[in-house]
Design a protein around this nucleic acid. Structure first.
Length: 888
RNA sequence: AGGGCAUUAACUCAGCUGGAAGAGUGCCACCUUGACGUGGUGGAAGUCACAGGUUCAAGCCCUGUAUGCCCUACCA
């Protein structure tokens, strides 16, 4: 206690944040035990990608989770927050590749094994970095249970799920149109393609009808794919083309004979009404092709160049081929026109290369049977989105879901547990490496070279991290998890897939709540991005303002699911709040006698002054409200309430009110003791409420003001609960009227330009016994805080000087003779304004009350409230009028 | 095309089950009060986008309109 009295004048988070975090980890506070006497509360962290450092999105995500987990830990739950990182298959592969290229190494040349070694090194380095960053933020996750999506246990989980789904017929290998990234040279799932509007062209091309002078004109945005055309489709009811159905066309350049087919997929109104059909290069055409038994001709290689099917264009890049084909068509006189056309082009979400829909043999998950129970789970509210509107997004996706392409032609990732027999062609799906073919006993086996989509392993995260497929104690105790916290941009990729995976593999949903937050944007509302260079590094912010300030900023001032703009000024405001707490605590510490730090309520109960009871009662209310807000995931509101209480009630009023007792010297020191007890009680409680939001500063102060029999750390201290016995309505009323009075006087003084230093007599007239007592008890407050030289409380308005200003509040009239200081005209004007205000209020209240429907239909409490207001305003108005009269 | 969000003070945003419009920042005036100038006191500042409707009562519920943003699906 002694050294803390020399506590610094300003809040300096650098002095303690790192030290405290280390202690917390050493003490094992973040490592909960399987304890059947306690209830579990579990959060799995959305694993950050190992492709880079943490950004503001991670910061807000981690902060929200930490608030919840710290709160629940204090509430006595066995609170587990599992951290981890994601191997981010495609993204990491791109990065590692780039990294190697800088060193002059080509991925292909070093081969799979060597490349994987590089990737593992990368993973190690970046995982460490992420860990450090999460620590700086104060994340109270259990590092002893940290996982990585590529670690052995998770690999086991991945293989198990794959085999199970395959055996159930839910995983199949198929030749279908998939999204192909020619740069990454891998298939992508639908979710991994992002569409953006681009200026392109429509080329109108003539396809002659065989053995006739007739021809049809088709329009296309990708002329190079015409080389793979195997039909032209028209709508069966289209009068213009009906006669051509079944006829044969000559495909220009290639000179292949292709049929005209009728298919209602064609939109008569769009383009020319004739559609070229390229089953190997377009998902819709693929479907049309199946319906009409059309040949599938792939004209492109995996790297985006044309293949041998493209004849003389073989080897050319797709865009080069496009130009040359257009030229050739022009020279053949078959190009009718070229028209500008903006359309949506799909891009690889990792490298922005235009994806090519292409026919390819890949592994898929059959989604319908998995989606159905996952939709049900949300409909039955076994999984609840917060805010609820995001369940719509979820349904929309789940209900229109296509089969999920899970194979990737990459090296970094979970290798698909499939082997092919090179002798008999048997496909062997197995968790363990088979030594011979199950069919022909050949040992000539080769493992599938593809790896799985990253999201396949992420989807298992809520149970794979707990040990599944092993039946671990953790799994039994901590699953299903309590809440998942993530951004709305990841609902499809991850949340939806976790839900069906949990139901499928665990027979139960992975979490009961999904708390969705928005994006952190820059101060102009733009998305933070590398290309714009407008990203703000959370670590820099922490370095400048402290982690607590950043955290507080990220949870306040926005509502769940909405994006927020990031302003330095906001962090500054949070930092100032921390400074306020720091100094209020400094005040408390400086004014507590060492021997009184362990005071108990019983020892001071009879000595508690009204202001003590008031602040205790208020704290009690706030504790209950904050808890309710947290229960409803209203973290921002909860934080705001703590802020308001701390600054607006505890610092602005209670500390000021209690000063005379601390500085004064009563005979046995009992009232001072009571004041000290109250200061400590409320400050400790407030720190606890604040701890989930600002873990560092609260701990730093707590350790210095805790009583001997309290927890050694605020991290594991008990969350304040509402205590009916602490409620004191009378004390609240009494202090409120005193505050009203003081504010009224300050107000008038300011308007009259009379500073507090100019002392004046204060005469308080009231007919209410309780107010009378409160005012008498509060005399010293007026002296201290309203510049009163003397306070006289009376029941009658006698001897009120002419030259006095007046303050009329509910329950009392206050007069302050200011002699020559007061400007009569100004005072009259001020009173007239007040009269007008009261008249308006009265008018509104009376209007309501004279409305019979209001009186009969509104709830009684509301009507009573209005009646009380009427009485109050009337009384105040009378006071104002009387004063005006006497001043004339 | 379908869906969602936003529209409240100069700026950024809160406003929980409908029941007297709030915060932070900024602005103006004043204050070296023994925790804090990263502070204190007081103040100015809002037709709650618009038009209807429901209700005793609407920023909040319903319908429509406008503007901006986002998501999903896409017509070759």
């Amino acid at each position: 206690m002694e050294d803390i009295k020399n506590i610094g004048k300003t809040y300096n988070p650098k002095e303690f944040e790192e030290r405290l975090y280390k202690t917390w980890v050493e003490k094992g506070y973040f490592t909960p035990k399987v304890d059947n006497k306690k209830k579990p509360y579990t959060i799995v962290m959305p694993p950050p990608n190992i492709t880079g450092k943490l950004h503001m999105g991670h910061a807000i995500d981690a902060t929200l989770q930490d608030v919840l987990i710290r709160w629940k830990r204090m509430e006595g739950y066995s609170a587990l927050w599992i951290p981890g990182e994601d191997h981010a298959s495609i993204a990491t592969e791109v990065k590692v590749e780039e990294n190697l290229r800088k060193k002059g190494i080509i991925k292909k040349e070093i081969g799979r094994e060597a490349f994987l070694k590089e990737a593992w090194d990368w993973a190690k380095e970046y995982r460490e970095r992420i860990r450090e960053q999460l620590e700086k933020l104060g994340s109270s996750c259990d590092w002893t249970r940290e996982r990585f999506t590529m670690d052995e246990g998770l690999n086991e989980a991945v293989k198990t799920v794959f085999v199970n789904l395959y055996n159930k017929g839910l995983i199949y290998q198929g030749n279908r149109i998939i999204n192909w990234c020619p740069r990454c040279k891998t298939a992508l799932s639908d979710a991994e393609v992002e569409y953006s509007e681009q200026e392109g062209h429509f080329w109108y091309i003539t396809y002659p009808v065989k053995g006739s002078n007739e021809s049809v004109v088709i329009a296309t945005t990708r002329p190079e794919t015409m080389l793979g055309d195997t039909a032209v489709a028209v709508h069966p009811d289209d009068e213009r083309y009906k006669h051509l159905i079944g006829k044969t066309l000559i495909l220009p350049i290639v000179n292949r004979e292709i049929p005209v087919v009728a298919d209602s997929y064609v939109d008569k109104e769009f383009g020319t009404g004739c559609v070229k059909i390229t089953p190997a290069h377009d998902p819709n055409d693929f479907e049309v092709g199946l319906r009409h038994n059309l040949e599938q001709i792939r004209v492109m290689n995996d790297d985006g160049t044309m293949n041998e099917q493209a004849g003389k264009y073989n080897g050319l890049d797709r865009y080069e081929a496009r130009e040359q084909i257009v030229e050739e068509l022009k020279s053949l006189g078959l190009l009718v026109k070229k028209k500008k056309h903006t359309h949506n082009v799909g891009e690889c979400y990792r490298c922005r290369t235009t994806v090519e829909p292409i026919l390819s043999k890949q592994w898929f998950i059959k989604m319908k049977p998995l989606a159905e129970p996952a939709i049900e789970a949300v409909k039955e509210e076994k999984v609840q989105f917060v805010p609820d509107r995001f369940s719509k997004t979820y349904f929309n996706w789940m209900e229109n879901i296509q089969d999920w392409c899970i194979s990737r032609q990459l090296w970094w990732g979970h290798r698909i547990p499939v082997w092919y027999c090179k002798d008999c062609g048997e496909v062997i799906v197995s968790k363990d490496t088979p030594d011979k073919c199950s069919k022909c006993k050949s040992t000539n086996l080769e493992q599938e070279t593809d790896v799985l989509d990253t999201w396949f392993s992420s989807a298992l995260w809520p149970f794979s991290t707990l040990g599944w497929p092993k039946e671990t104690e953790d799994l039994k105790y901590f699953y299903p998890t309590s809440v998942l916290v993530t951004g709305y941009d990841i609902i499809f990729f991850w949340v939806a897939r976790m839900v069906f995976s949990g139901i499928e593999s665990m027979g139960d949903v992975p979490f009961s709540h999904v708390l969705i937050h928005g994006l952190v944007r820059d101060s102009e509302g733009r998305k933070m991005s590398k290309s714009l260079g407008n990203g703000i590094d959370p670590l820099e912010v922490i370095d400048e303002y402290g982690a607590d300030a950043l955290r507080f900023t990220l949870v306040t001032g926005n509502s769940p699911g909405n994006d927020m703009r990031f302003y330095r000024e906001k962090v500054e405001a949070s930092r100032n709040f921390a400074n306020k707490i720091w100094n209020a605590s400094r005040f408390v510490i400086m004014n507590i006698d060492d021997t009184n730090i362990n005071l108990r309520l019983e020892e001071v109960n009879n000595e508690l002054a009204t202001e003590d009871k008031w602040i205790i009662s208020r704290f009690n209310d706030v504790a209950s409200e904050v808890t309710e807000n947290l229960d409803k995931f209203e973290l921002g509101i909860a934080a705001q309430k703590i802020y308001d209480f701390t600054w607006g009630e505890f610092c602005d009023w209670y500390i000021e009110l209690v000063k005379p007792r601390l500085y004064g010297n009563d005979e046995d020191g009992s009232t001072k003791k009571a004041a000290q007890y109250t200061l400590l009680f409320v400050l400790r409680g407030t720190l606890k409420l604040l701890h989930p939001f600002m873990p560092f500063i609260t701990e730093e102060i707590y350790t210095h003001i805790k009583a001997e029999d309290e927890c050694e750390s605020i991290v594991i201290s008990k969350w304040p609960v509402y205590d009916e016995r602490l409620k004191d309505k009378d004390a609240e009323d009494s202090i409120e009227i005193i505050i009203d009075g003081i504010k009224g006087i300050r107000n008038v003084r300011a308007e009259m330009n009379v500073p507090l230093s100019k002392k004046a007599k204060v005469m308080i007239v009231t007919h209410d016994d309780r107010v009378n007592k409160a005012m008498k008890d509060g005399k010293s407050f007026f002296e201290k805080l309203a510049g009163a030289s003397e306070v006289i409380v009376m029941t009658q308005k006698t001897n009120i000087p002419q030259d006095a200003v007046s303050v009329i509040i509910h329950g009392a009239e206050i007069f302050m003779p200011l002699d020559d200081l007061i400007d009569r005209e100004k005072e009259i004007e001020r009173l007239k304004k007040e009269e007008e205000r009261l008249l308006n209020e009265l008018k509104r209240v009376e209007g309501k009350l004279s409305n019979e429907k209001f009186v009969s239909k509104a709830p009684k409490s509301v009507v009573d409230e209005e009646r009380e207001k009427k009485i109050k305003y009337k009384e105040m108005l009378e006071g104002v009028l009387e004063r005006l009269n006497s001043m004339k």
